[in-house]
Nucleic acid binder design. Sequence first.
RNA 1: GCGGGCGUGGCGAAAUCGGUAGACGCAACGGACUUAAAAUCCGUAGGGCCGAAAGGCCUGUGCCGGUUCAAGUCCGGCCGCCCGCACCA
Length: 854
Amino acid sequence: MARYNAKESESRWQGVWAKCNAFAAPNDSSRPKSYVLEMFPYPSGRIHMGHVRNYTMGDVLARFRRAQGCNVLHPMGWDAFGLPAENAAREQGIDPRVWTAANIKTMRGQLKAMGLAIDWSREFATCDPSYYAHQQKLFVEFHRAGLVYRAEADVNWDPVDGTVLANEQVIEGRGWRSGALVERRKLAQWFFRITDFADELLFALDELPRWPEKVRLMQKNWIGRSEGLRFAFTLSNGESIEVFSTRPDTLFGASFLALSPEHPMAQRLSSSDPALARFVAECRRLGTAEEAIETAEKSGYDTGMTAQHPFDPDWKLPVYVANFVLMGYGTGAIFGCPAHDQRDLEFARKYGLPVLPVVVPEGIAPQDFSIDRESYTGPGRIANSRFLDGMNVEAAKAEVRQRLERSGKGRAATLYRLRDWLVSRQRYWGCPIPMLHCDACGIVPVPENELPVLLPADARFDLPGNPLDHHPTWKHTWCPRCGKAARRDTDTLDTFVDSSWYFARFCNTAAAEPVDSTATHYWLPVNQYIGGIEHAILHLLYARFFTRALRRLGNVEIDEPFSGLFTQGMVCHETYRDANGQWLSPDEVEKSGGIARRRDTGAPVEIGPSEKMSKSKKNVVAPETIIDLYGADTIRWFMLSDTPPERDIEWTEAGAEGCWRFVQRIYRLVTEASGLPNPGTTNLETANWGGGGEAAVELRRASHRAIAWVTEDLEGLRFNRAVARIYELANAIGASPANIDGSVRREALEILVRLVAPMMPHLAESCWQALGHTSLIIDGAWPVADPDLVRSDTVTIAVQVDGKRRGEITIEREADAETVRAAALGADGVMRALAGRVPRKVIVVPQRIVNVVT
RNA sequence: GCGGGCGUGGCGAAAUCGGUAGACGCAACGGACUUAAAAUCCGUAGGGCCGAAAGGCCUGUGCCGGUUCAAGUCCGGCCGCCCGCACCA
């Protein structure tokens, strides 16, 4: 019996596909287009199981769409700028270009070994000057359009990576990459005006039905839109201070004003008030230790000043500097209404300030309502508020707004949590910012005919700091406006800029312009984007912004880059530790009967929980090892089986073996089938139904049901269910009688092979050939189910007595209710359960169930 | 604290328009083939009870309660786990 030789088959078919350029996508076609994209990889060195899962899912979809007759764009590239290359240069003295190119070479080979249906002619790396040149053009265009600006701001400084970071890149007070505690610094930096699009980016989330709810919600929260009122209080020293509030309806419940310790006025006052200066310094100290924020008690410093209530000049409120007021949000100053804000309440209790409820829940008399430890933030009627009394919250908000606007003290305002995107990085291995600093002319963009600004090839990495900055000559140039000496900007762009438009460049990688509008008009938006949830905010928000910016500049016509988004789960594995608590890798461990031992010494090993594969816990399995052992189809099949794609999957050796057995099983079913008519000569009308006739019909039904189910499951990216359906069909074929009609068996086998093809493409080609075909299965159409075979003429339904299953009946699908009722009452188990009792009621749900109620 | 998601066999999971719970896979067990092993094939299987068997009965989807002829699915209240944001005015 011939075993399937995966290694031979896979390299052979990969060669055949490459030779006929099978996956090259023309930029125009009469076929409908489908753009399938997985998040492109960072060339870290080797592909890992996460990549395998990601690219397998995308590949199944790309091949499925291709079989359905689409012109499919499925490209691959490299997110190739970034710190690891620069760190390698520092640690090993390797040129980042060389390091990156070597990694790409290795990883490209590994991806090709997976048999991905990729148009490799479109491949590029973001570190290619031919890519970043266009990015520099876009930067200059953005600058001209006012979408880029330079500003001095309090920024996040990552002391380990030695660079600033955007807000999105600070996770729990730490740098997203280094994990170092982020410090605040005041620096002049470049920003993208993403806040210009805050409303668009927020509201358009509702028009992305094929995005996960979770991601949309995360983006919504990140943008953090709140509507309210900005208005001023007059202080006892004659100055005025502006606050922002979403609850102007509670203005008569105010009992204090509070400024952020970083507020300019607090800073100024502290210069003549040493006690305040000490308080501000203390807040700053605690502020950076992020763990402290969580538990930090509210505290404040009474400035001794008072503020006039906007509606009553005789009502004076104390003015504090308080540790819980943030300078980075709103105006850095608030009015405190303790009864209706928990933070204000805690503050008021500590300093003995009044707590006056002004919103009273419906049905409670104002005098019966008081606040103890919990503030009240629900709806209700306004009380204790003069002209607002009796109104509901919304009406009171509107009334306060109108009065303050009329008196010129305030105006409606919408605030966002979202900040502009800081894109400067004090690093070498990135896209140079094409800007010059001239003492006479100020900031001057590099003229287009001098682009690209190339990275110097002779940078030194043995000095601390930014290599571009301490390069002896690179930054010195001449100002294109006045001709005098000027300095290049020595910062490079955040690498998230590189990945914010690569999907548009894929549409035409040879275009003279950054974005070919004809090609993007044809291909964009991406029909299905697939990647990890870790980019829910970062990359996906930036790419959405970039697309809108490109549209504003006339480069693209769409608002949203990705009409469908799928976030796949991680790949996990059991963890192992020896008696000393040292982590062990799976290949150092031998398992039998649930007990694990060291392979070398036989010493016992403790099996830990399954966690995301990571080098630190050594629970990694290298994809190339598995491909080498079983082939790409086996690893692909594993990634699709059992676990829903959005959940974390656990890699197990036993599961991989099971997949390998199935590969062999399919091959055996195909190669051991006998009595098959030649391809194209089957005749299902005149098939010989004698002998195994009933079985033949059953097999045809199983085959066509499989088509219907697998098609539906692939449409919904429910790969695990599609896999289960394919197992069922294989089981049905295996269980069918040996003498079954050859035409029927051929039909079943061909359907099986075609359904398997997007998932295990090499095996499918080999089987297709073994079935006598000379064409490639990748050129075959997706099978279509015969509806008459999908639905059978009879149905088997359960019969319940008082809600408990007591029997089942098989009956004509279209039988009327009376017939079903009679059959149900006559069923064995039903008669027994009734034991002569007369049913009170019989509920018949056609084609589903019968329930007999006594 | 706020927001979201999830709790189903030994394990991954199906069943979401309320209608036979556990499809399919992994692991396990029994058997066949084999000198033996591998590979393969057949069979068993939520738990419990009755029965020689065929089969039957009870019970079961985190817990408590409700709606319904019927609840894994809907509603109310708990418990547990995971994720995101976190003093955002």
